[in-house]
Amino acid sequence: MKASKYIISGLTFFIFIFIAVNVHSAMSGQCSDCHTMHNSQDGQSVAYQLNAAFDDFEANTTPNQYLLSSGCVGCHTSTGTSSIVNNVPIILNTSSVVNPLAGGNFTYVRSDDLTGHNVVGVKAQDGTLGLTPPGGSIMSSQLTCGGEYGCHGDRTSGNNPFEGLKGAHHTDDSGGITGSSVGLSYRFLNGILGNEDSNWEQDNTNTSHNEYKGSTSSATNTISYLCAQCHGNFHTWEGGGSEVGTSSPWLRHPTDVILPTDTPDSEYESYTSYSMVTPVARPDSENVADTTAVYPGTDIVMCLSCHRAHASPYYKMVRWDYKNATLSTAISGCSNCHTDKD
């Protein structure tokens, strides 16, 4: 009897382990990689955070919600230069970064407000902009990774990044990105669609990259729509006719509009090979015939066609050095689409 109890217990344990490691969740690994039951191990705090100098981690005696060892920044930061550590995408390398990921890297905004989003835990409030995002209204609180003032997670969950992202990392997304929950949204951007590159574009090649959802209507599942929640005046459908216009001549550079094909000089039609410098969104990001190609007349201009989401080495988070002293470099991204302006 005792033996059978051990056998059952053992089977149960192994079944649990089997299920635990085979579930199609957004992440895998030991629970203790992210969680701590008591924030205590051998009398020492397990929770950690970046130190004040931002050059190393330090113990945090204050336990985190959901038994987490650290917050978003803590988990996704590295003091090394690699942009993926133990299969965790690194959004902040405290010194410098090699092969930054698709969103860029917050290391740049650490030294220059003008190059990225000033996110709580990474950088203090923007000295110039304060709490007012360009093209939007003043916020009550500084930008966070998730929550009401963040990009990731449920923005209706209050000003609490943990709450907004609760459970997302454990969601089985093997059925695809549907946007029906935070965990089933592109990069946990609630309701946003897209196709996630397995290495977050670390290899930076157009044969393997993210696919972004775009739409030429007031859809709420596009990557540009998300940006427009703060920068609404810069988005075609959020800004509307008085801010962006609805057709040429545009008032501001449009987003979520089709790369046109009927210009007399074929200006945009010549952009046919997908560039990692100026990616385009797709009307159906899950089904792209040839991901190395751009399809003018179908593909869509988006915010991320020009900007990195987190931070870039360049002024205003642009994906290329728009301020470079050499014009051909400065407009190298512009001319990918505006081919007769090169």
């Binding site: 110039t128 902009l129 093209g135 005046n233 501001r252 550079h253 014009l327 407009i331």
Partner: peptide
């Protein structure tokens, strides 16, 4: 902020906004 001769920014403000 832009000083490169010929840059688009000398005529175009892509978002009608520079530094907000």
């Amino acid at each position: 902020p832009y000083t490169t001769n010929g840059l688009c920014a000398h005529c175009h403000d892509q978002h009608a906004s520079i530094a907000g």
